[in-house]
Simulated scan of single mutants.
Amino acid sequence: MTSSGRAADMRVTVLAGGVGGARFVRGLREALSGDDEITLVVNTGDDLWLSGVRLQPDIDSILYALAGVNDTERGWGRAGETERVSAELREWGSGWPWFTLGDLDLGTHLARTGWLRDGLTYTQIAERLAARWPIGVRLLPMTDAEVDTHVVVEDGSRLHFQEWWTRHRAALRAVEFQNEGIQDAGPAPGVVEAIEGADVVLIAPSNPVVSIGPILAVPGIREALANARRVVGVSPIIGGRVVRGMADACLSAIGVETAADAVARHYGRRADGGVLDTWMLAEEDATLAAGLRDEGWDVRVEPLWMSDLERSAALARAALA
């Protein structure tokens, strides 16, 4: 038994992306023992080619956070970064001048691109990257296919998600999110087994549309969730507001209200063909619990703010309970 009285050797699989996912997984790792097994299935819809190198923002953000080398002030990239290469690329007119890459971060992208040219898959590359630091989890991309997210905006233009998100700060009204080729993609090796073999699958408080949405859109993943033992989701909405980023703009584009109960209904209950068994609401949204329970939902109300590692671990323990 662990110090908490829970049996050891628990297998937990997390669907995650972005900063919210990184914070949640750090708390989960803190909450579990060294005998437990954590597998992360990470969104790769944010990926892109830029200046000839392949970027995987969500994979890298989670990797850096778990390794303790992330820039906690900016919320992205490596700590102690310099940006000499990005400055030189701007002088050459290469890449996007509004999308700055740190030199240490570029080292990761160059290594990844070289391994791709050598014939490695994204799954194999994630394993190599994770081996550098003792991160304590198994890191899996959602798919080995390239299914970058593009955003169709109101005037009909189609932008890469990173341009819409980083350059325009989601100010251009989105009408559709597309992941070209995702219908022909498949889960990365090990993803289905990790979901179906887990004692519990956790859906992190990541952006429901552009972080969790692409994962669920990979053929075979919803089917795996249907066969999972238990699926628990954590709301990314607290008090009717997004915690970080512009997830409200993404939700509006697909007709979902920025509210914790609306996101729950967006995911749906497994009993009704959705993906969740349990939904975790913030204390600030406790008044929404009764309505969901009337619809048959298993709802838990907990403190959801992950302002430090201790609170993140407490949230993870509540999700596991």
Results as ranks from 00 to 15, higher is better:
E196C: 03
H109E: 07
R78W: 15
G296A: 09
A130I: 12
M142V: 08
D118A: 15
A253L: 00
D148M: 08
L101C: 13
T108M: 08
D9H: 13
L281T: 10
R132H: 15
I195H: 00
G291R: 10
D298R: 12
W165D: 03
G93M: 02
A16K: 04
G95S: 00
G240T: 09
T123R: 06
F99A: 00
R74A: 13
V263E: 03
L120R: 15
L66K: 05
I212T: 02
L28F: 06
L110E: 09
A171H: 07
V192A: 02
R26D: 11
G136A: 09
R229S: 09
L139K: 07
T278A: 11
L288M: 15
E310S: 13
V218L: 04
G136P: 07
F24Q: 10
V263P: 01
T143M: 07
G107P: 11
V232N: 04
V14G: 03
R222A: 08
G156D: 05
A262H: 03
E37P: 11
M306C: 08
A198T: 04
V210R: 04
L304Y: 04
V201R: 00
W115Q: 13
V263I: 03
E223V: 11
R6N: 08
I38G: 12
G114T: 11
F24W: 14
N179A: 02
G296K: 10
R293F: 12
S312P: 10
A31L: 05
M280C: 08
D35G: 15
G119M: 13
W115M: 13
R6C: 04
R241I: 06
D308P: 03
P97I: 02
W49P: 08
S86Q: 13
I221S: 07
G68S: 02
A226M: 03
V200E: 01
P208N: 02
